[in-house]
Write a protein that binds this DNA or RNA. Structure first.
Length: 415
RNA sequence: GUGGGUGUAGCUCAGUUGGUUAGAGCACCAGAUUGUGGCUCUGGGGGCCGGGGGUUCGAAUCCCCUCACUCACCCCA
């Protein structure tokens, strides 16, 4: 028997519908804020991610689905959404258009990881990118949109916020941090990190590292005046919106392109996979990808994890809807023909395709959650009528076949 | 990538110290009710006991390998 590839999932109709509702909520929210959809390919040239996401990141080092095509080009299934959107933004020279540019995306991402609860090799993300706005108001808009998404779905999330400074102040901080940690007791992994990406030591969970970090220099002490002012602006903006947040100086995030603001939405409901979404500012990325120097900020929200939390917004089921035709030989073909125009009127209509008994047809109607059954047997045809049954109350009444389409169209819950 | 747990019907799970034809509940199909769903009763279909190898007269049960799922670590969504 064939099995689904590791870390991927099938969405059977019920679950697919849950996912669709999450997507619809995302699309509606994004357009409310004025973001337009950007659809980019599911794979890109590997170099885009290697350079854009960053050589030293976990994603690039060990999680990419990379393969060669027949032209021996190296391609990679996208591990995240920002690089592709920025590539498209630059390639189509959209920076010549009105700024800021506001885009959202919704779709699958791919990371080669060992699967566990809330972690998949094919995962879905909803993301937004806001390009061309430098001030803290832009950061606040992005963070607020994510916050509103969780609120709308009834998901309880905690917002964690940090600023990792700009290139200049971060360099200074890195130097100070490396100087402090050198010679201290840190884990093997972090000894390597110390050279290549010292900030990553900050969110290491090894006890030795956390101990070594006590009394270490803090990024907040190294922020240059401009970065400090920006960060204050972000905090003030969030307060103005009544969005609560916690500060965490160890929030670094795994992608190289971030600067200044970083943030994450967390939950306690998911066990060890507690990150629901996150993002930050990435002022240097557009230039890195070959465009002009344009500031930007964005976020990505994990849809699988939200669905896993079974948010209240997904619980409200729809009531009974539509019509089921119940008929029997020798009237069946005639009855089906009579009823077909209902479908052309946009009415939800089903009927038995297996030649099942009368009783079984009602059972199917019930199970399909139909609101009405329309009974048209041989006797009814003779009398020129159909019998309409309300599946909620069980009440029945005759309908004249002549006006069938009109009569049924006026029923409630049929479209 | 490292470590732990679990694999028996579509689903949730029983299955004794290794012993005859592997069970239950739910779901599915049919009948009781030849024109009426939900409730009830009766019957039926469905299993390479994850896969391969070994021990044994005999393996769902014991041993080895493998695959999958799952949880944790790393990291993230």
């Amino acid at each position: 028997m064939y099995q689904i590839p590791r870390g991927t999932r099938d969405f059977l109709p019920e679950q697919a519908e849950r996912f669709r509702r999450l997507e619809e909520a995302a699309v509606r929210l994004a357009s409310q804020y004025g973001y337009g959809e950007m659809r980019t390919p599911i794979f890109e040239y590997s170099e885009l991610f290697e350079r854009g996401v960053g050589e030293g990141t976990d994603i690039v080092e060990k999680e990419m689905y990379t393969f060669q095509d027949r032209g021996e080009r190296s391609l990679t299934l996208r591990p995240e959404g920002t690089a592709g959107v920025v590539r498209a933004f630059v390639e189509h020279k959209l920076y010549n258009g009105p700024l800021p540019a506001k885009y959202f995306y919704f779709g699958p991402m791919f990371r080669y990881e060992k699967p566990q609860a809330g972690r998949y090799r094919q995962l879905w993300q909803f993301g937004i990118e806001l390009l061309g706005a430098e001030g803290p108001r832009a950061d606040v808009e992005v963070i607020a949109l994510g916050w509103q998404y969780y609120q709308k779905l009834g998901v309880e999330a905690t917002l964690v916020l940090n600023s990792i400074g700009c290139r200049q102040c971060r360099e200074e901080y890195k130097k100070a941090l490396v100087a402090y940690l050198r010679g201290g007791k840190i884990c093997k992994l972090c000894s390597g990190r110390l050279e290549r990406n010292p900030l990553r030591v900050l969110d290491c969970k090894e006890e030795s590292c956390q101990q070594a970090l006590e009394g270490a220099p803090r990024i907040s002490q190294y922020l240059c005046p401009a970065c400090q002012e920006h960060f204050e602006g972000v905090k003030a903006g969030l307060e103005g919106f009544g969005i609560p947040f916690e500060l965490d100086e160890r929030l670094v995030r795994g992608l190289d392109y971030y600067n200044r603001t970083t943030f994450e939405y967390k939950t306690k409901q998911l066990g060890s996979q507690d990150a629901l979404g996150g993002g930050g500012r990435y002022d240097g990325l557009v230039e890195l990808v070959g465009g002009p120097s344009i500031p930007a900020v964005g976020l990505a929200l994990g849809i699988d994890r939200i669905e896993l939390m079974d948010p209240p917004a997904l619980k409200a089921g729809e009531g009974r809807q539509g019509v089921w035709l119940v008929t029997m030989e020798p009237a069946a073909q005639r009855a089906i023909s009579l009823v077909h125009p209902l479908r052309q009127q946009g009415i939800k209509l089903q009927y038995d395709l297996l030649g099942r008994s009368f009783k079984a047809q009602f059972k199917q109607a019930d199970r399909s959650n139909c609101r009405w059954t329309l009974i048209i047997g041989p006797d009814d045809l003779e009398q020129g009528q159909a019998v309409l049954k309300d599946m909620e109350t069980g009440e029945q009444q005759p309908l004249a076949l002549e006006n069938l389409v009109q009569l049924v169209s006026n029923l409630e819950g049929v479209k």
